[in-house]
Write a protein that binds this DNA or RNA. Structure first.
Ligand code: MN
Ligand code: MN
Ligand code: MN
Ligand code: MN
Lengths: 223, 223
DNA sequence: TATATAATTTAGCCATGCCTAAATTAATTT
DNA sequence: AAATTAATTTAGGCATGGCTAAATTATATA
């Protein structure tokens, strides 16, 4: 069995790989809030275990074995989030922190029981895909909200799950996955978005919009 | 926050104190499956934290602060066992191992949510008392099954929870807490017990009987 | 009471996973 | 091309929580 730290490194490498491409020692260290030298040390250990590939100064890549483990941990995390949300009523801004600890600790049996209880779900409370038990991820394509223009309507697909305060903020506007809204105005000079959610007008800052991903985009005439 | 190892030591000292009285370094080491020198080391750490009292060669005792933490962890463990049993259908011989890991990791919020979901229970699936959130333990007195005599009837109060194979064995006879049985015969020379459970005759060895505790004892005439 | 035995503690070692500071290598600028 | 800057790696340390082997202390036995 891997240590919790090793599992967290693998998971983080996977996530950075997803969005970025090349994963440098520095990226990884920053993401995990450790010093670059600590990341170098763990990368070496993971390399001897053949879970990552790494050439000095060239960045890290997961091997197939490493990717399998990363997806396993991500599956635990997202199943736990959804389970805590649905079965125990933990608010959506609280599930991430709890799952972050539990993901390393639950058995395969518990994983399977939660999966069955939830009816083999494919998305967590923040809209992120839950890998199936074979590590297959079905991710519908989505677009960052900052790429939207005036008059476009869309549906929230996914939001970042690791900032509790941000999630509470989004929750106050009902900006959950599945919620539809229309862009009324994008202020110039990298300004905020004014949107219409179910008849309510709401202003969303750019920094917040970066954490919201949408799909089902349609051009709509001003109502 | 204490480390997982420190929490396990405190919990173990509490449990050994409960049944035994004096807790020696050796007892503790054997119980935790570590070497006596390792136990000595942790005892020193716990002493500097004022969680235990210890004089060289004299055994350990929990301080009030140490006892509070021990009970907190035991509460987590037993609530988790019951939760896994009732909410996720984990069999009673599987809950202990799972709870052993989760008990160190759940938040106070999750503890409270499980407690509420379960209706503020006072006993875990093995009949052990669940300390309330203030650390108060209500333990009904019970007697080891080995102290029973021919013709006595009783009700199972509690069974040891840490041996999975033993629990499956007991389960095969429905020897759960709350199950009534009558002693038909105690074989001489430290022999096995023949008992009657709901009309079925079952033979229980002495080693097994040591792990069963009963109450509601009544003298009954042979039926 | 002296000695043998058992329990406990001390001393010194190892792996993990973090740290800081220094050295090295790569990339950018002039 | 040389020099500056930035990223990465190496070297050496620290805390935790195990271990073994040796020394110490307490207890039992003769
Ligand atoms: Mn799993
Ligand atoms: Mn999530
Ligand atoms: Mn608690
Ligand atoms: Mn139990």
């Amino acid at each position: 069995m891997l240590t919790q730290a090793a599992e967290d490194y693998l998971k983080s490498i996977y996530k950075l790989q997803e969005k970025g491409g090349k994963v440098s020692t520095g990226n990884l260290a920053e993401y995990l809030d450790v010093k670059p030298s600590s990341a170098t040390g763990m990368i070496k250990k993971l390399k001897t275990m053949k879970l990552v590939s790494h050439e000095r100064y060239q960045g890290v890549t997961l091997t197939d074995a490493g990717k399998t483990i990363a997806l396993e941990i991500i599956r635990h995390h997202r199943l736990l989030e959804l389970y805590l949300f649905k079965a125990l009523g933990v608010p959506w801004d609280g599930v991430h922190e709890e799952a972050e600890k539990l993901e390393h600790v639950i058995s395969e049996d518990m994983e399977a029981r939660m999966d069955a209880f939830l009816g083999y779900p494919t998305e967590d409370p923040h809209g992120s895909p839950i890998p199936d038990k074979n590590g297959v991820v079905l991710k519908a394509p989505s677009v960052q909200m900052t790429d939207l223009n005036n008059g476009q309507s869309c549906v929230v697909a996914e939001v970042s799950d690791d900032d509790s305060a941000l999630l509470r903020h989004l929750g106050s506007f009902s900006l959950y996955p599945g919620t539809a809204f229309r862009v009324i105005e994008v202020a110039p000079f990298e300004g905020p978005f004014t949107i219409d959610i179910a008849g309510q007008q709401v202003v969303i800052g750019r920094e917040v919009a970066k954490h919201i991903f949408v799909n089902n985009i349609e051009e709509t005439d001003n109502v």
